[in-house]
Design a protein around this nucleic acid. Sequence first.
DNA 1: GTGGTGACGACAC
DNA 2: GGTGTCGCCACCA
Length: 111
Amino acid sequence: MTENNFFNSVYEVVKLIPHGRVTSYGAIAAYLGAKSSSRMVGWAMNASHNYDSKIPAHRVVNRIGLLTGQAHFNGQSMQSLLEAEGIVVIENQIQNFANVFWDPETLNKDL
DNA sequence: GTGGTGACGACAC
DNA sequence: GGTGTCGCCACCA
């Protein structure tokens, strides 16, 4: 319950990802001050459905825009979900990644 | 309690 | 510039 845990913080950030944008595990980890713990972000995604199934985990990819977690999705593929938001994905690779990339720090600047 | 693994990332060679 | 290795922390056997 809004515990200030690392996992919960990750979910908060992921749910703040704007529509049609994506971010990376490392970016989230870095935003939380644990850039070295990027793996934990991925692990948090793995358990995300256990906390809140509404978490758009498909908007989270690795630093190169590769849909590494596609295999963990049931039924729906990350690519389909991302393309539905206007993101071009080819071979599990996000095209024009720099253009659709959203950094959590952007939210801070927008404040 | 120990060891191995993981939806990653950065550095060394 | 590609490959290999370590780190990081949480979870499972």
